[in-house]
Design a binder for these strands. Structure first.
Lengths: 193, 193
DNA sequence: ACCTTGCTGATAGTGACTACCACATTGGTA
DNA sequence: TACCAATGTGGTAGTCACTATCAGCAAGGT
């Protein structure tokens, strides 16, 4: 895809120093073609489609457990799926590509902002996946607060993971962040790596 | 200030539909003058200078308490200071201006992203204010995780406050969000409004 | 052969933002 | 009064992300 080329160029030459025209030229297409597949330049790096993945793991948790525990274990499990399962046929998966994108997102202000904003969509996906009693607005508020806090803890772990160049196991880092924020008894240690 | 005019125009005509040239013309200055005071168009709305305020409240908490309790009570106290203390001589303070800016930030994607990114700086300010043992990198990681989670919970409360047009007391909403995320025993009810 | 569909390309714009340079005002000094 | 540095302001021209509109163009079905 065009995307892998773009990420490589961003890493080598810097995000701001690489224009969309440069990428298009290197890919052998017209600049307009790039915009057709990626509405903005930032979307060349931000392709988070793990909302459904997290929702799936949420649905697999027991509704009897507290909110933070359900969300936290789902995030850990989703991270284990993402980092563990590298398919060699698809260059868009695998830790190195994930890591390069994440380091770009953290170091580039514009990307960092949009990445944090993407947590909005993920937060909503989590709230929808929880939706036991969707009618109560107060329950929805509590779910939003819990999901946002869990995502923020996970993000701290992601930053740490990127700083370590992925040498530490990501699911373990997420567990540590969750424990730091919510306490040891609020985290499910079963699926932790 | 130019800023109050800009916010008013953004509210009336929409953020994207209002150009910097429009604001400059309405303010009777050249477009370059606007850029001199506000490096980007987004900065016309995003003037969060409450990092020192939160840090001050953090410093007033007891280091013996758990991290989340210290941060949470500081955020609640800071919110009480911001919403309660409207100085009539300064139009940049007061709930209505704060509310208008917040509603802009939430409804406009570009502003929402930058606003979330501004939490990065606030998170760092909190970590620095906590800095009991600044040498231990693991303690810093835990502080970052706790601060990020608390800020996310506060942000959920901010969204709710904006949705309610500020009719609910903001400090109380933050307490509710903190309780939802961290449990009732993790929140200090003393300074809550 | 014919037509629809969907991907692609070119042109010409808008608007945010950034050089670079020139002008005006202020305030202190002699 | 004359001189000078500092600071706020304005103009011009340019880059770049992004959009709107129109024109091919290849694939596939009938």
């Amino acid at each position: 895809m065009i995307q892998t080329l773009a990420v490589r160029m961003f890493v080598e030459r810097g995000y701001d120093a690489t224009t969309v025209a440069d990428i298009a030229e290197a890919a052998g297409v017209a600049p307009m073609t790039v915009y057709r597949h990626f509405p903005t330049k930032e979307d060349l790096v931000l392709v988070d489609q793990n909302g459904p993945l997290v929702a799936e793991h949420i649905a697999a948790t027991s509704p009897a457990q507290p909110l933070v525990r359900r969300i936290g274990s789902a995030l850990v499990a989703a991270a284990a799926t993402l980092t563990g399962g590298a398919r060699p046929d698809d260059p868009a998966t695998g830790d190195t590509f994930l890591l390069a994108r994440l380091q770009l997102m953290i170091s580039t202000p514009a990307l960092r902002a949009r990445h944090l904003d993407s947590h909005y969509a993920l937060q909503q996906a989590i709230v929808d996946a929880l939706a036991d009693d969707a009618t109560d607005p107060d329950a929805a508020f509590r779910a939003r607060a819990a999901a946002g806090a869990c995502l923020a803890a996970m993000h701290t772990a992601l930053v740490r993971w990127a700083e370590d160049d992925g040498r530490t196991e990501l699911p373990g880092l997420i567990v540590q962040a969750l424990v730091a924020a919510f306490g040891a008894d609020a985290v499910d240690v079963d699926p932790a790596g």
